[in-house]
């Protein structure tokens, strides 16, 4: 996974330098890496990792929504500048995060620098990532409203209707409470793994 996100980042930077469109360059590794994150929800649900299943699900599903439900579905939005900042924020967050997991799985001694990185990069990157996600979704709304992909209407034999446009609006509205909630969650994690151990060290001396 670390490798997958590194490829995303490298291709993103290369495309930026040669001022080519970003999305075609990152499309495949991005789709693979982000879809693989479904496993994280499975791990959290099965209790294999200590992370809460609810927050993991929230995080992964919103990203999947962007990758498959917006970027893949709405070609018109792929060139938006917020796509670049979004993919940049995602890959910069995921590289140290998966590196941290890999090191943690291999040894018990995690370099403190890596722990710090894993629980600190979110402070600028989370607002950047979530802000870009919301902006990209917002930019896609007019196209979704016009084309109404994935939507089902009454009447039908199972009496079901689903309007993808309204679902997108609902998801967008949920970013408002979602961002501070997740940010507070990450701050608590940071306090637990970065700040508190440092305090304990100071107290012990």
């Amino acid at each position: 996974m670390t490798a997958g996100w590194s490829i995303v980042l490298l291709r993103l930077l290369r495309a930026l330098i040669s001022s080519e469109p970003v999305y075609p360059a990152v499309r495949l590794p991005l789709a693979l890496s982000q879809t693989g994150a479904i496993l994280e929800v499975v791990h959290a649900l099965s209790g294999l990792v200590r992370a809460s299943a609810a927050t993991t699900l929230l995080q992964v599903s919103s990203r999947l929504m962007l990758v498959w439900g917006v970027l893949d579905l709405v070609p018109e939005v792929r060139l938006a500048p917020t796509v670049t900042s979004m993919v940049l924020a995602w890959s910069l967050t995921e590289i140290p995060r998966y590196l941290y997991f890999s090191v943690a799985a291999a040894t018990t001694q995690i370099p403190p620098g890596l722990t710090w990185l894993r629980y600190s990069t979110f402070i600028p990157l989370y607002p950047l990532g979530a802000g870009s996600e919301a902006a990209t979704l917002y930019a896609a709304l007019p196209y979704i409203e016009a084309a109404r992909p994935l939507s089902v209407y009454m009447p039908n034999r199972v009496n079901f209707a689903f309007d993808y446009y309204y679902m997108c609006v609902l998801v967008l509205v949920n970013y408002l409470p979602g961002l501070p909630y997740m940010f507070a969650h990450m701050l608590r994690q940071r306090k637990k793994y970065v700040v508190s151990p440092a305090e304990k060290l100071v107290k012990a001396q």
Binding site: M154, P155, R157, N159, A161
Partner: peptide, 9 residues
């Protein structure tokens, strides 16, 4: 909403 829909089948 669905059971009482005017287009209910």
């Amino acid at each position: 909403y669905f059971v009482n829909h005017p287009l209910y089948t």
